[in-house]
């Protein structure tokens, strides 16, 4: 009887010790989401001056490639469009040419007007900076002398 009581006590104490030494756990629920992110930025304030060509000569053009732009989008097939706040003077044309990011397609030099036009399309999941933005100012021989400025507004439209 003494031997069995001893054995029973040992068994009981081992059970308590085993329970106390087992792992303890605690849980938390983490809720998260990633929304559509579409943002662009530009650096630089280009200045262009062109002297209209003589009558009968080709149009005169100057370009400025000192500006850069950057883009971040986590969507597919986003695009960048642009417009200016006022129409250009008669016989004067302003074009913008945006370098495409790694995944995207540039439409090359596009004439800017007060209606938005696409400059880069197909931008898919990109975060890229230092892309070149080139402006080209062209005047025909019929253009009058003018000194003015235009605000170019760029817009990124998210894809899917």
């Amino acid at each position: 009887m003494k031997a069995s009581r001893f054995a029973l006590t040992v068994i009981l104490m081992l059970a308590v010790g085993t329970t106390a030494a087992s792992a303890q756990t605690a849980t938390q629920t983490v809720t998260f989401a990633v929304t559509a992110v579409n943002t662009i930025s530009f650096t630089g304030a280009p200045s262009l001056s062109v002297t209209p060509a003589a009558v009968g000569s080709s149009d005169a053009s100057v370009s400025d490639a000192t500006s850069t732009w950057a883009v971040t989008t986590n969507q597919s097939l986003a695009k960048v469009s642009a417009q200016i706040n006022l129409a250009m003077p008669a016989n004067v044309t302003l074009k913008a040419n945006l370098q495409a990011p790694t995944v995207g397609l540039s439409n090359g030099a596009v004439t800017l007007g007060i209606t938005s036009v696409d400059l880069v399309t197909g931008i898919t999941k990109q975060a890229q900076s230092g892309l070149t933005a080139t402006y080209v100012l062209t005047a025909t021989a019929a253009a009058d002398p003018v000194s003015s400025n235009r605000v170019v507004t760029y817009t990124i439209s998210g894809g899917s």
Partner: peptide, 23 residues
């Protein structure tokens, strides 16, 4: 030995980026 937590964190949402950088 004891381990407890005070609750769960608030929901987290990635929604903003600086152009040219990851969100």
């Amino acid at each position: 030995p004891l381990l407890t937590v005070s609750g769960s964190p608030s929901a987290m949402t990635v929604s903003v980026a600086t152009a040219g950088s990851q969100p």
